[in-house]
Simulated assay, not measured.
Amino acid sequence: MRVVLARLRCNGKSPILQKNLYDIGASLCDACLQCGQSLDDLHHALYDYPKVDFFWSLIPGDHMESLRQSPVEMIEFLRASQWLPIA
């Protein structure tokens, strides 16, 4: 989990984001594999992913800041929103 968060903190330069995989030539598509609606970048994962609206009440405040300062809550958010299905 620490690796996942560290990669997300690096401005979304993470292999779990399709945008990053597309940028390095490892994917033919930069769209979100979960919803197919948008560019799969960090902003999409934290703000635009359709399932996140309900779960934002779990983490008050700025979500980019939560990614840095509240890693446990951020992991719970990502699990609950089903954007990041990690054990």
Results as ranks from 00 to 15, higher is better:
L5F: 04
E65Y: 11
I24M: 07
A26P: 07
I59L: 10
S66W: 06
P71L: 03
L28Y: 09
K51N: 14
C29W: 04
C29L: 06
R79F: 09
K51C: 03
D23P: 08
W83D: 06
Q69W: 13
L21M: 10
S70M: 11
Q82W: 08
G61W: 08
S38F: 04
Y47M: 09
L17H: 07
P50S: 00
P60S: 06
Q18K: 14
L46S: 02
S14Y: 05
P71N: 02
R7G: 11
A87S: 13
F77V: 07
H44A: 05
D40T: 08
Q82K: 13
R79P: 01
K19F: 11
Y47I: 08
A26D: 09
S70R: 15
Q69D: 13
V3I: 14
A45K: 05
Y47D: 03
C35D: 01
M1K: 14
L21P: 01
Q37V: 08
G12D: 03
L39R: 10
E76C: 15
A80V: 07
G36K: 09
C29A: 09
L42T: 04
F54C: 02
G25V: 01
S66L: 03
D40S: 05
E73C: 01
L46I: 04
G25S: 08
F77C: 05
P85K: 14
P85Y: 06
I24H: 02
I24A: 03
L46K: 02
M64C: 12
G12M: 02
I16G: 05
F77L: 10
R7C: 11
A45D: 06
E76D: 10
A87K: 14
H63Y: 09
D53N: 11
C10G: 12
F54M: 10
Y47N: 10
Q34R: 14
L8D: 08
R79K: 15
L78W: 12
D53Y: 09
D53E: 13
I59C: 12
D41R: 04
I75T: 06
K51W: 10
L67H: 01
L8S: 06
L8Q: 00
S38C: 11
L58M: 15
Q37W: 06
R2T: 14
N11E: 12
Q34E: 09
Q82C: 14
L21R: 09
